[in-house]
Amino acid sequence: MEGLEGKHICFVTAIPMTVEVFLLDVIKDLLGRNDVTVITGTDDPSFLKRYGLDVRVLPVKIERKIAPIKDITTLWQLFRYFRSLPFDLVHSLTPKAGLLSMMAAMCARIPIRIHTFTGQVWATKNGAKRYLLKSMDRLIVSCATHILADSPSQAAFLVSEGVVKGESILVLGNGSISGVDTERFSMDLKARYDIRERLGINEEDTVFLFLGRLNHEKGLIDLANAFVRLTERYKEIHLIVAGPDEEDMGKRMSSICKERLHIIGATYEPERFMSASDVFVLPSYREGFGLSIIEAASVGIPAIGSRIYGITDAIVDGETGLLFEPGNVSDLASQMELMINRPDLREKMGLAAKERVKREFSRKMMIDAYMTFYMDIFRQSNLHA
Results as ranks from 00 to 15, higher is better:
239 L>F: 06
11 F>Q: 15
45 P>C: 15
10 C>R: 01
25 D>R: 05
42 T>A: 08
309 Y>L: 09
205 D>N: 07
143 C>T: 13
251 K>T: 12
35 D>P: 03
322 L>A: 05
84 S>V: 10
241 V>S: 03
230 L>S: 00
376 D>L: 06
315 I>C: 07
289 F>H: 01
243 G>W: 11
342 R>I: 08
259 E>Q: 13
53 L>Q: 04
331 D>F: 15
193 Y>Q: 13
102 M>S: 13
63 E>V: 03
359 R>E: 05
6 G>Q: 08
33 R>K: 11
152 P>K: 10
110 I>C: 08
82 F>T: 04
130 R>D: 00
308 I>Y: 00
326 P>V: 13
340 I>D: 02
271 E>Y: 11
361 F>A: 08
267 T>F: 11
219 G>Q: 00
57 V>G: 07
58 L>S: 13
338 L>V: 04
55 V>I: 09
217 E>M: 15
257 C>T: 14
244 P>E: 00
260 R>W: 11
344 D>R: 06
167 E>D: 14
336 M>T: 07
288 G>F: 08
16 P>E: 12
80 R>S: 13
154 Q>T: 15
32 G>K: 09
190 K>G: 02
5 E>I: 14
80 R>I: 13
234 Y>F: 12
131 Y>A: 14
50 R>A: 10
214 L>K: 14
50 R>Q: 13
